[in-house]
Write a protein that binds this DNA or RNA. Structure first.
Lengths: 350, 350
DNA sequence: TTTGATTCCGTGCACGTTCACGGAAATTTT
DNA sequence: AAAATTTCCGTGAACGTGCACGGAATCAAA
């Protein structure tokens, strides 16, 4: 207490009269130690307030960790590309600690590709895994395997039913939809709104935006009950058909003005919007893709809600590094990132 | 390139035929090395891609750093109290690296107190300093002293005229005012708005919110030119007089509805606002004090603009630790934090 | 009592740096 | 050419921990 010096393992050695080796065995409880010595060391450690020097440990131990990150292929300026910077930042710190980070990518529209990625991941025997789970069933198989091998794993973006994960970093989807509706209407009494959705194949993919839509609709029901919500489906693989779809919709519903979209693809309808300007129109979307931000700057998009996929991976990797390297459990298991509202006036400093 | 192993200082030794000591002297360029050896080592380091092992360095070097943080006394739930968590987070990592963080507090309304704090700071001979500069002249004296002693320093919150600082972390004040006006009016044509300001004594304190006000007024001039802006002054030390002041103002200007405030004290007028509810009224303030957030949750305040004083100190301390411990210069010198828009619908996850 | 097995423990090297110290080599002075 | 400097360089002991190895002590079996 009184002494300001840092207390080392050798202090425990001196205090207990035992040896380095024994003290070390106790501290890592790997047995081969008598009950009596065990207690003596524990008491001494407690009393002296011993904190192991992490860097000395790292230096001494030959073990190097490998963290695998399983996520969809990061097409340029796509949602998943946003996470790249987070991975790089995490890489810096983890590599400084003698670890490695390996990306394992899959095609987010192909279950086979996901399955194949899982195989690649397992055979590289990582020390820890970050998972962006888009396929429910396949993910649970992977998780089972990891649990059997006692490899800790962390979910990002969304979280399946599963109880063996180390931590989860994601966005509160329902609340983000609620917020989206508030940004769209401002609680004002708008008569109607259009929601643009992505046509999905009937893959057994989980669609995380369903909760977002629920939040959106609940907000309207509570704050703007008279508002009618229309839906229109587009296909990102056929961008040339989007204009026609929108033309068709607005011919039938000229009174609709405000538009929301629950995924990162709001930029897909920007060309149409800019070809059909309308004063006072509010447009709200998600995620800070470069294309979205450009539209925000031009005023075509009123607000974007950003969820920091980069922060998510970074924190996920850090949590794994903490437990693997420093043996420190994450503070919270379920972590919700904050939702940032981006407008043309604050996007500059983002 | 080909070998996957980490390259150590000893690899350079082997490659150059020189000794550990010489290589070390070159790497830390502390002289006593011939030109020829110097070049040889540098070339080898370059070619091998040598990265020093930080932890081995830390282990070997006896030097422990002390980072002093000079900032106003952190009254409970005040703006400066927000930075506490950032200091604590930085403390964790810095103490892990064998450093210490010391807060040096002063009374933000007393220049004598600031001067006295500078004295205390200097005599503890810190290795680096974080400064929240509220008094222009005194700050420049301190900075001069630090430069003479070659102690690196970082500004947070605001930045005086000075060119010797290592880095600056703050908020773009002008733009925050612009954003504030946008959040208040939404670009809609409001007839008038009220700005509530803090009465200041004629100390030679710098008032960082002047730029914020400029941004605010410019937005209105550009987007809502017909809008009339009124000002009212209140004194935080006489909260009991606030109600009267506002009563007086609104008796004379009943048409005014929307209210903005450029500092963290929006909570001061919340009691009055809640005693005088008015439908559709927009109220915008700054900073996520607990009192402000409570009012935001209740809907009394429409939006808060948050500037992350905690992130500011944390990054500032990290920048110092980087340069002092790892000899790594900050990526950017002037760093503007992002401005977050807080509403009752996204404040939950903040 | 001797042997063998078991449980427990200490020794010593390694990890990649930093840095003080002492000394060789090169250069200048007498 | 010897002495005195100056410039440059190598050696070796830390820093705090991990871990392999070998050996002492204890106990059971012969």
């Amino acid at each position: 207490m009184a002494k300001n010096e840092t207390v080392t393992l050798m202090d425990i050695v001196r205090r207990t009269g035992l040896s380095k080796g024994t003290v070390d065995r106790v501290l890592h409880n790997r047995g081969e130690v008598s009950r009596k010595s065990y207690d003596k060391v524990m008491r001494a450690a407690e009393e002296l307030g011993y904190k192991p020097n992490v860097y000395a440990s790292l230096l001494a131990s030959p073990r190097r960790i490998v963290i695998a990150v399983l996520l969809p292929y990061q097409a340029p300026d796509s949602f998943w590309a946003l996470s790249a910077s987070g991975i790089e930042r995490a890489r810096e710190s983890v590599e400084g600690l003698g670890g490695t980070i390996v990306k394992v990518e899959y095609d987010q529209y192909s279950m086979d590709s996901f399955r194949e990625a899982c195989g690649r991941l397992l055979e590289m025997e990582p020390s820890g895994v970050v998972i962006a789970p888009l396929f429910k069933h396949e993910t649970s198989l992977l998780a089972e395997e990891l649990r059997a091998k006692e490899i800790p794993y962390v979910y990002i973006d969304s979280k399946p039913d599963d109880d063996g994960y180390l931590a989860y970093f994601g966005m509160p989807m329902y609340d983000s939809g609620y917020l989206c509706a508030d940004q769209l209407t401002g609680g004002q009494d708008v008569g109607s709104a259009l929601v643009i959705r992505i046509r999905r194949d009937k893959l057994r993919q989980s669609d995380p935006t369903v909760n977002r839509r629920a939040g959106f609709l609940d907000y309207l029901a509570e704050h703007v009950p008279a508002c009618t919500v229309h839906s229109v489906f587009i296909d990102p693989n056929e961008p040339e058909r989007i204009d026609g779809t929108l033309d068709g919709f607005f011919a039938a519903h000229p009174e609709v003005r405000d538009i929301a979209m629950f995924n990162s693809r709001i930029h897909l309808i920007v060309p149409w919007l800019e070809a059909h300007p309308r004063p006072g129109r509010r447009v709200v979307g998600f995620d800070n893709l470069a294309a979205n931000i450009a539209a925000l700057r031009r005023g075509t998009v009123s607000a974007l809600i950003a969820q920091h996929p980069d922060e998510q991976v970074r924190l996920a990797i850090d949590a794994l590094a903490d437990i693997l390297l420093l043996k420190r459990a994450p503070a919270r298991r379920d972590n919700f990132m904050h939702m940032d509202i981006l407008t043309r006036y604050n996007v500059e400093y983002y």
